[in-house]
Simulated assay, not measured.
Amino acid sequence: MKLRFTKMHGAGNDFVVIDATRRPFAPTPQLLRRLTDRRFGVGCDQVLVIEPPSTPDVDFDYRIFNADGSESGQCGNGSRALARYVREAGLSAKDRIRVRTSTSVLELACVDGGLFRVDMGLPRLEPAQIPFAAAARAPRYTLTLANGDAVEIGAVSMGNPHAVLRVDAVDDAPVEQIGKALQAHPAFPQSVNVGFLQVLSPARARLRVYERGVGETLACGSGACAAAVVGRLWGLLDAVVDMELRGGTLRIEWQGEGQPVLMTGPAEAVFTGEIEWPN
């Protein structure tokens, strides 16, 4: 059969969006790897699947599949893409919609200038909620990597686990080396997304993210949120910060403990198409 899709991106973090509101979409890891392959498939960082709501308090269910076939509980850039897709595909005329992922309920909103805002919910800082193996919550943790090097991190979940490191210059950071080492670290039983944060001023920072199941991407919305939270807890960033990623800039707002993280940024449709798909 023909599988219809829409290719989208948010700040360079790209997605294949599948509308499963009328027909179920049940991919295998093998088929997902084919779909995300940039040479033999459509090519993307993640596949986003829109499904009918499983509970009356949300407008849609929303599943996120990584390029390696694994499922993620959160994707901030993907959520903005989803909000734009839902409006342009005529699935909802609301300015605000609520969606459920495997770990979170998110509120998505269209704002002025063609931008989209996502209420990412409360950051989870307790180690057991991340999950992260630590005796107690702390603003900073020191981990020893397999090669004997020690790194200082902040740890937070935005519906998916993040470790954030401060670096002097993101352009020179050993992103793949440390990213892979932390993803394999026993302190993160579900692996982890690894952010490399360069603070330019209290209101401006640069970030690179090595994502689990994907590798480095041009942007990571939940990673930008996690970095803003850690930077604020460390006393380095203001409540509103422009986070510069390689694919674009996201505005992150976090007023502090007990408050949700808000993320605002662009979302663009690139093209629509069809691909042969097994029945």
Rank of each mutant, 00 (worst) to 15 (best):
G154V: 02
P186L: 05
L218A: 15
D172L: 13
R166M: 07
E216F: 08
Q198P: 06
P189G: 07
L250T: 02
Y210T: 06
A227H: 04
M243A: 13
A205Q: 12
L145R: 10
V241P: 02
G248A: 10
A136Y: 08
T142C: 11
Q190I: 11
L125C: 14
L262G: 09
S157T: 08
V164M: 01
V170I: 14
L236A: 08
K180Y: 04
E152S: 11
P127H: 14
G195P: 12
N160Y: 00
P260H: 07
L197C: 00
A134K: 08
P189H: 06
P202T: 02
V192C: 03
G248T: 05
A227E: 03
R208N: 06
R137E: 14
T217M: 01
N193E: 13
L207H: 02
R140W: 00
T264A: 12
T144Y: 06
L245Q: 15
S222H: 00
P127V: 15
K180G: 09
A155P: 08
A134Y: 11
V214M: 02
A227R: 03
G159W: 01
L250W: 03
G195K: 13
V156T: 03
P139T: 12
L165P: 14
R212L: 01
F132M: 13
Q259F: 06
A135M: 13
L143D: 04
R251F: 08
W254F: 05
A203K: 13
G265K: 02
G179T: 06
M263P: 02
R246H: 12
I252F: 05
P174F: 02
L233T: 11
A227N: 07
W234Q: 07
L182S: 05
D172T: 15
A138M: 11
Q198D: 09
A203P: 05
L182P: 09
M243W: 13
V241F: 05
G154H: 03
A136R: 14
V229H: 10
L233I: 12
G235Y: 04
L182F: 15
V151E: 10
G148Q: 12
Q198A: 07
R246G: 08
E126S: 14
G159A: 05
V209C: 09
C225A: 10
A135P: 13
R204P: 03
R206W: 00
S222L: 00
Q183N: 07
I153P: 10
P127E: 13
A155E: 10
A155V: 10
D242G: 09
L245Y: 05
V170D: 00
E216C: 12
V261H: 12
R166V: 14
